[in-house]
Design a protein around this nucleic acid. Structure first.
Lengths: 219, 219
DNA sequence: TTGACAACATACTCCATAGTATGTTCAAGT
DNA sequence: ACTTGAACATACTATGGAGTATGTTGTCAA
């Protein structure tokens, strides 16, 4: 009975996750194009051919939905990048790998990454109802941890003499501006092959490490 | 009598411009922190210790106010950069000068530049009521013209062999991401001297031209 | 000094939308 | 077969904020 209840629960949980993911994808697209405030939940519902009732069945508020999209976006980043941090190789190569993985990730999850950016802004300026503010702070720490990964690699590569920069803060910010650039300016062309997307990513990475004073060749 | 009427009109026009500028500054700060949609005109009014009545006396709608801020932001950019384009010097030096002027301008007019960015997004995604959509397009063309200035300098410096890039589109976008970075990550510290701000700008410019493959020294 | 108008402030209307309350369906467990 | 609850849809309420209508004040020309 406990087993039956569990299996049922798991199945249902899986259904729930699927439904939530579909909602999040619609929400991410809406938030990306119109911003958190201007997006109505009726719009989000319409985008997935559904109704507001479904959204409020899964989320207590618009803000909670937003935060879930934020969290999902960050998870995608971590999953793309963290495995590469373990690899044994010169820091400069790890840097290249990590940068490329990040760029590919943001291109593929553009809408979600845009929401992450909005979330960062909302924290900086203290928008967002007080209830969810705590959770927003928590997500910001997640983002800081992610950023810290990159800082580490930058400093390692600097120690090896492969790159050079003045202020780690400005350098890191500039690198992120570069590799997050596609979130803003990349427009997916229909019939764009995987190879073409990789070429875009490679060029972004090239500029990012050049920015850091790297003068070697690219693979 | 015609003269008297004109002089009166001019004096009043000056007052009007002053009042509009004060409104625009409040609006720019609000739009920057909360976004166009989330910003209420009551907020804007409160920020300048005034009322909504004053805003609607000068602007027909919230969108028109937004567009005026957008336009003002672009004007600030043009005024900072365009004089430098006439100077007789190697393209690479003109590039450095133009980049630095731009960075200093965006740091000093951060809120306005943020609104420009929002405006670009709104056009891309087709937000914004139909009435003002035409004017928004017009402003976008202004922005394209501004961007074109930079493209020209980039190509000249490329022809001189001082920099190198693959796609002008991606290179230019990356440069802009870099030099517009301060709009996002720069937080003015109280008691920050002019020298310190210039140091930040110099570092941004350094990274921007390094990104373009420049290997020479910085002044 | 008076009328006229600009430059506001005050006091409304009205609509879009966040949130809620309730109804419906369907699948699983008993 | 019937019960229960999850997963929605439908139909509402309540409110914030855009836009408007009107009132007030100060200034200048005649």
């Amino acid at each position: 009975m406990a087993t039956a209840a569990r299996s049922t629960k798991y199945r249902r949980q899986s259904d729930t996750d699927l439904s939530r993911m579909e909602i999040m994808e619609g929400a991410a697209l809406c938030f990306e194009s119109r911003g958190f405030a201007a997006t109505s939940l009726d719009e989000v519902a319409a985008r997935i051919s559904s109704t507001k009732g479904r959204i409020y069945h899964h989320y207590a508020s618009k803000a909670e939905l937003f935060l879930d999209v934020y969290r999902a976006g960050m998870m995608m980043n971590f999953q793309a990048v963290e495995p590469l941090l373990e690899l044994e190789m010169p820091a400069i190569n790890r840097l290249k790998a990590v940068l490329k993985a990040h760029v590919l990730c943001v291109i593929r999850t553009k809408a979600f990454q845009n929401v992450v950016g909005q979330g960062v802004d909302m924290l900086r300026h203290g928008t967002m109802p007080a209830n969810e503010h705590a959770e927003l702070r928590q997500l910001a720490e997640l983002r800081d941890a992610y950023s810290e990964h990159f800082a580490k690699v930058l400093e390692d590569a600097m120690a090896d003499g492969d790159i050079r920069f003045q202020s780690i803060k400005i350098a890191l910010n500039s690198v992120f501006m570069c590799i997050n650039g596609p979130i803003v300016w990349f427009t997916p062309r229909s019939g764009q092959s995987e190879k073409e997307i990789e070429a875009v990513a490679d060029e972004c990475v090239l500029y990012a490490i050049r920015l850091l004073g790297y003068t070697g060749k690219m693979p």
